[in-house]
Design a protein around this nucleic acid. Structure first.
Lengths: 199, 199, 199, 199
DNA sequence: AATGAATGAGCCTTCATTCAT
DNA sequence: AATGAATGAAGGCTCATTCAT
């Protein structure tokens, strides 16, 4: 029924597939999933409409790939920061680095983040994808933190919680901009919470 | 040129408008904004397609109304809990109540929550609506907390942050279900954070 | 099947019917038949949507009535001018009067004129209505012209033709505004043609 | 955001675009602009609904194209007649040719003519299109008449007026069919007027 | 007679996906 | 592998007309 999806092995093909993903990434970020159509993706990727369906099963399939690189783009730098932290770790300094990096990343990706999360609600596969990739990064961060001297007790819970908190804060800062909030002060509070959490 | 929107004053009309909002609420929750069409909304509300546009400017207008009652449904009970808390407040107990209530609410509304947040990214009006209503509740909670003996220092920042943290946690619990996470333990951590935050 | 259309005999009713026609007249003139909806007509007439269908069979029926008063509004003043012309008639003077009056009328009614003519193409009943009412006025003008000394030979043909010419000219002046045309000169030409025609 | 309109260069595409225009031409002629829907146009053109929007921006855009070929179809043959007239011109013979051709053309296109004119009232772009194309033809005719010996004095005014008169007459003949009019006689009158006009 | 809320068919347009080349 | 024209189902919205009150 459905034409088999090519798994591109040749360089040119892989390059083309990546271009499509990149185009999807940009467009989903800019105008959301429903604000983007496949023709637009193809155009921005510099390929024909039809060939998109040579590399992807459907539009949603592109989203799944975008999700993968999104996770990479957002979590890898954070993991990197944690990986590089000296032993014994200066948690306050680390917390600040993570917060700042998260804000920066969020500033670039917040729209996509929301789009992705919203679709996760509707689409079980997207959700699963999201979760499994999230898991990996949590695990890795946890390991690294333990390595640099943090107590292994409930470490995954702590990491996950910490990440959520930082992300909430970043979202606040980048997006909601409640005028009455002193975001510098709030950042200080977040920092203290994290320090306390991993004490 | 544009047909005027009825502002229903008669009981019957208000009832009907609410039915439409309720139908929108349910459908947006179940299948998201883009997964819902106006005919479906009308059908579930037990009205004709046309009359929907007698009460609402367009589909998005329904969303705005759904957003309003969503905010009510989600935040009011929380404000209520805070309002009822005795003086001097037992913060641990209060935190637990809020967390539990938030989880309950999230269990009912999480899909809509995501849909709404995602649209806020795309639609400035939705965003504004969201923010302004969020403001109100933050302010109210802050006042109440001060009244029951919490230090007024950076209280809005703290309340906002606290709400974000609780919501993140609730979302985790209801949705992501990372198998390796001990959510009971995580809850304990959240609780401690909140107690510490408002000490 | 269809509810009987009231033939309003009471003053109030007649007044109301006329208001509806007047509203239709204005709106059809302003935005055309398809740019007008019945709710708008009712609103401008100061009546309810429903009652419109108490006085008229449908939207088209309103148009038919509008057509009637349009014919009156446009042709009566012209007939009047002809009726008042002294014996023996000064054709040049008469022609000028008719031209000027037609322009004036056209300036007020040209949009409606077009709307009406266009519908006549599509709608046989409108066409018939149009024609029969046109006939009356032609006949009357012809009689009058003969009375004031014009040769009865082919008088209806001449009157009809004359009216068409004048109308074309009026339309040109009011509407098309071709920049390279000297409309004063053109008017002079029309005038000469008419004088010659009825010599 | 908006899908780009294909400018068809390949034969097949041009052919298809023309088929759509032709379908529009026919349907607008038969049942008017508002009596036609795009699905119908597509069907008659033998294409899918969607592809119509690959060639045209919207329904109105089709109308604009129809307008263009309408102008061609109606005015070109007339220009042709004038172009071919010998020098010195036999105005009576020329007038008769033009009248007869106009009637013939009108018989085929009168409905569309009305539809078009009516829309010109409502739609500024249609109006502009109409006027500019009208201009061209008037200019051309005027030049040609001067070339074959007609006095250049007020020639554009005369040509324009003449065309209007002939069109009025043609419309009368084809459409209104007032029973009491002797159209043969009327034609004679028109002919005389034209001869006189260009003497 | 009158109201105006309600109906629902129908329209224009978009877009994910397919297909001829 | 690639193109991009073509498909057609689906959606948001309007509006002439009806109906309960």
């Amino acid at each position: 029924m459905s034409t088999a999806i090519r798994v591109p092995q040749q360089e040119r093909s892989i390059e083309k597939k990546n271009k499509i993903i990149q185009a999807g990434y940009e467009l989903f970020s800019e105008v959301g999933y429903y604000g983007t159509n496949t023709a637009e993706i193809a155009k921005r990727a510099g390929v024909s409409t039809g060939i998109v369906y040579g590399y992807f099963e459907d539009k949603r399939d592109i989203l799944l790939c975008v999700l993968e690189i999104y996770i990479d783009k957002v979590y890898k730098p954070l993991a990197h920061i944690v990986d590089k932290s000296p032993q014994p770790v200066d948690m306050r300094r680390l917390a600040l680095s993570v917060i700042d990096k998260t804000i920066e990343l969020h500033r670039q990706n917040a729209k996509l983040h929301n789009t992705l999360h919203s679709l996760a609600t509707t689409d079980e596969a997207v959700n699963a994808h999201f979760i499994s990739l999230e898991n990996k990064i949590t695990e890795q961060m946890s390991k690294q933190l333990v390595k640099v001297g943090i107590s292994p007790e409930n470490i995954t819970e702590k990491v996950h919680l910490a990440m959520n908190i930082v992300q909430s804060y970043a979202h606040e800062t980048v997006f909601d901009s409640h005028s009455y909030i002193d975001y510098a002060k709030m950042k200080e509070l977040v920092c203290e919470i994290l320090v306390e959490l991993f004490r």
